[in-house]
Design a protein around this nucleic acid. Structure first.
Lengths: 209, 209
DNA sequence: CGATTGAGTGAACACATGTTCACCAAAGAA
DNA sequence: TTCTTTGGTGAACATGTGTTCACTCAATCG
């Protein structure tokens, strides 16, 4: 048999595994991951508590799987955005809108990352920080191709990449906390984020050391 | 009797109240406020669980009291720093060191604010966000006296104030998460924060609209 | 086909939680 | 002094928790 066989056994297992992940993500959005219990997750996934252990050793392991899944989603999105040349040309002006659109489309994922980045368990926190660091490194490889920056030292490029990531996370937090059905607030957030990005970029050409 | 009378009754009450607050702050630092139970707080404060209710209606109310206390501490610190004219003259270069020193001196308070700002209960989160907004407003009144900025629109000044507060919070988070006894990491954080601030400031003179 | 594997069950456990209640003893008021 | 107020006690409660165990029964294997 092929390893992507229509193996009903594995298929069913994968289905309840995603049900557990989805349930955990939902509950995290409602009350935070740390306040979410194994039993709640199992119940919402339509499964008995003991069955949880067939898929994860503990809630911590479930949390790490969730982090991984969120960042894969996120990474694909950023990659697609970068591929669009029009976006790359106006990277600063566009990035604010892209961010808001991305966050809105995957609100649950971003909410999880934003909340558990600082509030969650030690293991989950460390995993998220690591992923964000990776992000900053990737971003610095994009930034180094921008005018003015191309002559900076690698440390400075990384510094400004971190500054961007930090403000993206903060922007994501704002969108996540945004009440439902308030498009006026949304444009305010986009506008504020864009201005902050532009202000930062303005300093590029005068940066030394 | 005067209202600051050596009233043994009130005195004792106030003492166990602070014991409860201190216990809650300690436990928050170890495991997060949301994961801290009423019984744990009572036990560490050396009191029976039922006694908790003589001081707070719920853990949520205790959390709000903690937020208030943290920000009063913080406000005093910033006010003292502003009063020093030497600091005000080199506000940007100094602010990074001040921040790190302040965070290190009141690590528990800052850790609480940083964590519960996004991970805590709805009520606690709202309270912290409100206090931080107040902070940004206060800061904008300081910033408006700086060269270049004095002609900006009020919205733009507030925007840059928010940018600063956001990065201060992020810097505080870094210090809080910093492992014990790693002074090398500390200077890296100070240096990084200072560079980011300087980069932002560089944009001031070219800002328009 | 019969044997085996393994995802999901349901009950039980030992414990921690928030909240209540009647009670106590000391501080303060009369 | 006696009476009242009140911060703190200890026991009890109902409920939610993580984890275990022997079990079923359908999909898979030989």
């Amino acid at each position: 048999m092929t390893d992507t066989a229509v193996n009903a056994r594995q298929q069913q297992k994968e289905r309840t595994r995603s049900a557990l992940l989805a349930a955990a993500l939902e509950l995290s959005q409602e009350q935070g991951f740390a306040q979410t219990s194994l039993r709640q997750v199992a119940k919402r996934a339509g499964v008995v508590p003991a069955a949880f252990y067939r898929h994860f050793e503990s809630m911590d392991e479930l949390g790490l799987a969730l982090v991984e899944r969120c960042f894969t989603t996120l990474r694909v999105m950023i990659r697609d955005a970068q591929r669009d040349p029009q976006v790359f040309d106006h990277i600063i002006d566009a990035s604010a809108e892209i961010l808001v659109a991305a966050v809105k489309a995957n609100k649950a994922d971003f909410a999880f990352v934003a909340r558990e980045r600082v509030g969650g368990s030690e293991a989950v926190r460390a995993a998220i920080r690591h992923e964000l660091d990776l992000f900053a490194t990737e971003l610095s490889m994009v930034l180094v191709r921008l005018p003015n920056i191309d002559k900076w030292s690698p440390e400075d490029v990384l510094m400004v990449a971190r500054l961007f990531v930090r403000n993206m996370v903060a922007g994501a937090e704002e969108v996540v906390e945004m009440p439902e059905g308030r498009p006026d607030l949304e444009v305010r957030i986009v506008e504020g984020a864009r201005r902050q990005m532009r202000l930062i970029v303005l300093g590029f050409k005068d940066w030394r050391s």
